[in-house]
Structures are given as structure tokens and as C-alpha cells.
């Protein structure tokens, strides 16, 4: 466009570079269980937040204007990433906590290789929605008990019983603040996803 422009943007010329293949995993669970902390522990960037507007059309139509009453809600999802090599990049997306944003989950989860459902044993039922969701979608997932301050209120067997997940779903205790712990939890999910490809 501007022929006088010098070669000031050499990087621009290599814009034809192929981007990495993005591999997506989803971090899920109830409010305040440590989803963002988990993403932040392993991500090479500070977790980013993006927002999507959800327009809910209220039942009924305004009689005078014939305009459906709409309310717009904004949900936030946060995410981070980890470059595996120049051709491969792992993305971690946290789902919004609210159960009623199930369709927002679809948007985030579509194409994910696996999920990690984080559980706080003091509020076990907060994670039912996430467990149901992954089971229903047939996405490989593991349940990770976030040991807040090293304390777990229930044994893993109690957690398994309470959540009613099959033996095929790995259950583990981890620390959302520890990179190595998050890494190992993600590895459990990836190994499960890999095993599925060999069935």
C-alpha cells in the first residue's frame, strides 16, 4: 500500500508462518475451587479473561413495542497457554462457574481433548454440574481434589462415592498453586485421552 515504506516490519513478512496446532483442555468446577489458580500455575502467560455476552430473551413480548425483552449477561472465562514446541500449543480454558451457562460451556469445550474437574471437598456438590457435563459429552476427564492448605475433608473413596463417578474416572489430590502438581494432574487427563484413542 505504501511503497515508500522501508522494510521496517520484517516480522510482518514472515506472517505466512504457520501458527501452532492448538490443543485445548478445560478446567472446570464450582465457584472459587481454584480454576484460575490452576491455569495460572502452568500457563506461560498471566491468565487472560475474555467475556462473551449472553443475551437472554425474556419470556413474552412487550405489547407496546413488540420487542422481545432482552437481558444481557456477561460471562467471563479465563485461560492460559503453554507452548510445547513451535508447532504445538496447549490451551487451558476455565469454564464459568454458573450452571446456567451450560451453552457457554459448549462454546469453550467444543474440540477439547480432556477436562479437569476441580473439587473442594468442603463443597462437593458444587462440581456435579461439571462432572455431568463431561460425562454427557463423552470427554475424558479426571476429578482433582484441591487440597486447600493440605486439608482434605473426605477420603478419595468418599469423594468417588459422593460424585458417583466410575472407576474409569481418575481421582486425585492436587495443589492448584503448585506447577508440578497441576502438570501431573493434566498428564493424568492426557494419558486417559491417549488411552481412548487406542480402544
Amino acid at each position: 500500500m505504501t511503497p515508500t515504506e522501508p522494510a521496517a516490519v520484517p516480522a510482518a513478512r514472515s506472517a505466512a508462518v504457520r501458527p501452532p496446532l492448538p490443543v485445548k483442555m478445560v478446567i472446570s468446577g464450582g465457584f472459587g475451587v481454584g480454576k484460575t489458580t490452576t491455569v495460572g500455575s502452568i500457563s506461560e502467560i498471566e491468565p487472560l479473561t475474555t467475556e462473551a455476552a449472553i443475551t437472554e430473551v425474556a419470556a413474552g413480548v412487550d405489547d407496546l413495542t413488540h420487542t422481545p425483552r432482552k437481558t444481557t449477561t456477561t460471562v467471563a472465562m479465563d485461560f492460559g497457554c503453554l507452548t510445547i514446541d513451535p508447532t504445538l500449543k496447549l490451551y487451558l480454558f476455565g469454564t464459568p462457574g454458573q450452571e446456567r451457562f451450560g451453552f457457554m460451556w459448549d462454546d469453550i469445550v467444543e474440540g477439547a481433548v480432556g477436562g479437569l474437574v476441580i473439587v473442594d471437598t468442603r463443597r462437593l456438590d458444587d462440581c456435579y454440574a461439571a462432572v455431568d457435563y463431561f460425562e454427557h459429552k463423552g470427554i475424558p476427564f479426571a476429578v482433582a481434589v484441591n487440597a486447600f492448605d493440605g486439608r482434605v475433608e473426605h477420603t478419595l473413596e468418599e469423594v468417588r462415592w459422593a460424585l458417583d463417578v466410575t472407576d474409569g474416572v481418575p481421582l486425585l489430590v492436587f495443589d492448584a498453586r503448585e506447577r508440578g502438581s497441576v502438570r501431573d494432574a493434566l498428564l493424568v487427563v492426557l494419558e486417559l485421552a491417549l488411552a481412548r484413542t487406542q480402544d
Binding site: 490443543v23 510445547i84 504445538l88 481433548v113 506447577r179 502438570r183 485421552a193 491417549l194
Partner: peptide
Amino acid sequence: PDSDLVHDASVLRRVIEGLRAVPDS
């Protein structure tokens, strides 16, 4: 992203390998 490729065993193995090499704190 090509969903079949993303879910391919060879790609998953590479992610696993790459993640294993990530040091803990």
C-alpha cells in the same frame, strides 16, 4: 484446528512429552 489431528495419538503423545518436561516450582 483439525479436530481429528488434535485428537490423534501422536499429537497427544507430543503434548504429554512436552508437559512432562515442564519443571515444577
